[in-house]
Simulated assay, not measured.
Amino acid sequence: MNSKNKRQIFILSISVVVLFALTLVAVGYLQSTEDYENMSPAEQEEYDFQTFKKSMSEIYHQDVDKSDYERIRAGTAEMELAYQSDMEKYGKISDETMVAYCDHIFVGRVVAHKGNYQAQKNEVQNPYNLFDVEIIELIKGPALENKIELKQIGGYYTEEYLVREIFREREVKLDSFEKYDDGYYGFMEPNDELIEVGEVYLFVTVSQLDGRCTIGVPDNRVHLENYDDKGSDAFDEVILYKKVVASGVKDFDRIRLSANEEIKK
Rank of each mutant, 00 (worst) to 15 (best):
L81V: 05
P218A: 08
F252S: 01
G216M: 07
I105F: 11
R71C: 04
E45L: 14
G183H: 04
K265I: 10
I135Y: 07
R168P: 00
D65S: 11
P190E: 15
D236T: 09
A112D: 15
E193W: 07
F20N: 02
H61N: 14
I166G: 01
V99A: 07
E58T: 14
I136F: 04
T76R: 06
D219M: 10
T33N: 05
I135W: 07
V238S: 04
L240A: 08
T158R: 07
K121T: 06
K265L: 14
E261V: 14
E196T: 14
D63P: 00
I9H: 08
Q84D: 11
F235M: 03
T33K: 12
I255L: 15
K54V: 00
G198M: 12
E78W: 05
N220M: 11
I255Y: 11
L19Y: 06
D236I: 08
M188Y: 11
S13W: 03
E193P: 00
R256T: 05
L174R: 11
I11L: 06
L162P: 01
E169F: 14
L22G: 09
E199D: 14
E58S: 13
L144C: 07
V238N: 06
G141D: 02
Q84T: 14
G75V: 07
C102I: 10
D132I: 06
H223N: 10
D181I: 01
A26N: 14
A26G: 04
D233R: 05
G216R: 06
D35Q: 15
V200A: 04
I139A: 02
I153E: 10
L150I: 03
E261P: 03
F177E: 05
E178K: 12
Y90Q: 02
A143V: 11
I148E: 10
D192E: 10
T33Y: 10
G231Q: 08
E189I: 05
G248N: 08
D229Q: 13
E88C: 01
K53L: 02
G216N: 08
I93Y: 00
V206P: 00
H61I: 03
E225Q: 14
N191P: 02
E96N: 00
E149N: 11
V110N: 08
C213L: 13
F131T: 04
E34K: 15
V124P: 00
G115T: 02
S258L: 12
D175Q: 12
V16A: 01
M56W: 12
I255D: 08
V27K: 15
L224K: 05
D95P: 05
V124K: 11
E145A: 14
V18D: 10
L144D: 08
D229G: 09
Q208H: 13
I255T: 13
G186K: 07
M56F: 08
G141Y: 09
F203C: 02
G248K: 10
Y227A: 02
I195H: 08
Q62H: 11
I59S: 04
K243S: 13
S258A: 15
T76S: 12
A42V: 06
Y180G: 00
E169T: 05
I105V: 15
L257F: 09
